[in-house]
């Protein structure tokens, strides 16, 4: 098959995928999106003959647009642009999870520092302020006091890009020192890991320790529903344990899996490529959410 990979940086995740695809004899075209131009009629030459294109863009803004253009050119793309658009935006992510009945942390969005402060005070301390677009735990604030809230809000309003004036305020979930990442293909778990840290942020990118964890029935059901809520695809579903249940805080659409591959009992890139092959064969494109 002819598989395209959209990228601007080749991480270890992309190397794992490239190695697996090439080992299986697929013709892989690496497409550096920084060098492309996307018009309204014909696709860039590098898109010619592709059975499937996989979006692995590091930059969320590029990911949102290139998937939209690929879809416009009728090239099957993983993930679907609507999935990318929903997952790229934490507010939209929260909305679709809530609409699907998936337990997700209580969240409010406000547009001024005054209304954001009201939201923060209504949650009480600590609570969490997140950028609506962002990853790897960057620019996340656990707010412990009104003084801190006022300072952070003023900084964001004064210094921030306009998206930082969309204040995404969330309850602080008392998790047991870890959260859970489930890698899934169209809602079917591939593997899962727990990410543990003494810090309140437990992102692998922040240096959290990772270990394999079994996917239980409840987790499986939540992952399936959360995946469907964002339009399906190759996803990283993040959950926190809340006593005898879970809450899903977000779904990631250009999911990194190198840390998971190190602890998983299955061949993660192999399983992902199995699924990509099936998608390319079917030539399917997910219906918009």
């Amino acid at each position: 098959m002819q598989i395209g990979m959209l990228y601007s940086r080749i991480r270890r995740d992309e190397k794992l995928l490239l190695a697996e695809l090439r080992e299986r004899g697929h013709d892989v075209t690496k497409i550096d999106v920084r060098k492309q131009r996307f018009g309204l009629e014909d696709p860039p030459a590098d898109f010619e003959g592709l059975d499937l294109v996989v979006d692995r863009c590091l930059a969320t803004s590029r990911s949102r647009y290139v998937t939209r253009f690929a879809d416009h050119y009728d090239v099957p793309v993983v993930n679907h642009p609507e999935t990318a658009a929903v997952c790229a935006d934490k507010a939209r992510n929260s909305l679709v999870l809530a609409e699907a009945g998936v337990p997700t942390p209580a969240t409010e969005v406000a547009f001024t520092k005054e209304s954001a402060l009201e939201a923060i005070e209504s949650f009480g301390y600590p609570c969490v302020l997140k950028p609506v677009v962002g990853s790897w735990g960057r620019l996340m604030a656990k707010i412990d006091s009104r003084n801190a809230a006022e300072a952070i809000l003023e900084h964001k309003e004064t210094l921030g890009h306009y998206e930082h004036k969309v204040f995404y305020v969330q309850e602080f979930v008392e998790k047991p020192g870890r959260d859970i990442r489930v890698l899934a293909t169209d809602g079917e778990p591939v593997a899962a890991m727990a990410r543990s840290s003494d810090h309140w942020l437990t992102n692998a990118a922040k240096g959290a320790e990772t270990e394999h964890i079994e996917v239980d029935d409840q987790m499986r059901e939540l992952v399936e529903t959360a995946s469907e809520a964002v339009g399906g695809g190759l996803l990283g579903v993040d959950l926190m344990e809340t006593g005898d249940s879970y809450t899903v805080h977000e779904v990631n659409h250009t999911v990194e899996f190198k840390a998971l591959d190190e602890v998983a009992e299955v061949d993660v890139p192999g399983t992902v490529v199995d699924w990509l092959e099936a998608r390319a064969t079917a030539g399917l494109r997910e219906a918009p959410v």
Binding site: S135, W136, E256
Partner: peptide
């Protein structure tokens, strides 16, 4: 390239 604000997963 330097780290951009929208990089991630």
């Amino acid at each position: 390239p330097e780290l951009e604000e929208d990089w991630g997963e």
